[in-house]
Computed example of a mutant assay.
Amino acid sequence: MAWAEAVAGGAAAAEELLVAVDALTQRKPVGDLLAHDISVARAHTLLRAGRFADSYAPLIAAAAAANRAGRPDLAFPSLLNAASAAACLGAFDRALDFIDRGVPLAAPNGLLRLGVYAHSAQVSVLCRLGRVGEAAASCDQEAVLAERLSLTDLVGLVHHDRATIARATGDWERAAGERAAVIGMNAPVGRALARLYRADALARAGRTADAEAELRAVTQEPVSPADFPDTLVARMSAVQGLIAARRNDPELARRRLSEAVRGWQRRAGHTGQGYVAALIDLGRPPLTALVEPDRELAAVTADLRSIDADVR
């Protein structure tokens, strides 16, 4: 009940239930599986409250207890949640350490789906650290596992990660193509976000008509909390600004990009917001869906400055 309240109910109720659990287990032996469950519930209560650093200890304890019980399928999600928590704090080296500790628990134990998630998480963090070559190698391993399972959602996740790598290298045509594949599959990523990322890539590739068509398609997609709805307008304004810049309309480009800047300024300092919503909607820790408002703000500001520089 505490875990359920933490992820889909009320944080205060979760804390009250954990106090009751402590009273029930005080001075009594606690088995490894129960210790795992208690630690997971406590960690998710902290994640719900945005206390990401505080969640490390119970998540590490949960993974250790699950390993003692011979349950790598339970240990791995705790390590991946710890990685996501670290990423929310911008501690990407620590996030990678948690992921690297989780990789041997997945595919080597026959947990191929979790293996795909492990490599997907590696791709996300390695790209964030600028280690794109290593990210590409991890994505290749991810693709092998996804193809063995022949599940469209996992193959779609591979395309999502390939698009992330293409974006990191500035290969906008490839990024747009990989995003198109994601949209056509039941991948555990938001479709509205996938279309916006594709529109951005198309605009940067100079395909303005296709970018506009993708923006229109965004408005037809259902939106869930995992799409971070309060960021969609800022993303759309940014793409509209890029399209205007490509069409040599600096006044409109500046206006749209300025709107995007204001939108991200309202979210500045709130990395990790919506963590639990993404966890529920995507069915996995939201490492690859993490929104970094400060980084997005810096990117849009750079686009705006480049337009001002071109005009001068």
Rank of each mutant, 00 (worst) to 15 (best):
Ala175Glu: 13
Leu157Tyr: 05
Ser224Ala: 11
Thr219Cys: 01
Asp210Leu: 13
Ala175Val: 13
Ala211Asn: 05
Ala201Asn: 09
Ile183Thr: 14
His159Leu: 04
Thr169Gly: 00
Met185Trp: 00
Arg174Cys: 02
Thr208Asn: 07
Gly184Cys: 07
Glu178Ala: 13
Glu214Val: 09
Val223His: 00
Asp171Asn: 15
Ala163Ile: 11
Arg191Asn: 06
Ala176Thr: 10
Ala213Asp: 08
Val218Arg: 00
Thr164Tyr: 00
Gln220Ile: 02
Glu178Val: 08
Gly170Ala: 04
Thr208Asp: 03
Arg162Pro: 03
Ala180Val: 06
Gly177Asp: 10
Ala205Pro: 11
Arg204Ala: 07
Val158Pro: 04
Ala168Val: 12
Trp172Leu: 09
Met185Asp: 02
Glu221Arg: 12
Glu173Phe: 05
Ala213His: 12
Gln220Tyr: 03
Asp161Glu: 10
Asp161Val: 03
Thr208Trp: 04
Ala166Thr: 14
Leu157Glu: 13
Arg216Met: 06
Arg191Ala: 08
Ser224Pro: 00
Pro222Cys: 06
Pro188Gly: 05
Val182Leu: 04
Ala180Leu: 13
Pro188Asn: 05
Ser224Arg: 15
Gly170Trp: 08
Ala203Asp: 05
Asp200Thr: 14
Asp227Thr: 09
Asp227Tyr: 04
Asn186Pro: 02
Ala163Cys: 07
Gly156Ile: 11
Pro225Tyr: 00
Ala176Met: 09
Asp230Ser: 13
Ala217Glu: 07
Val182Pro: 13
His159Phe: 10
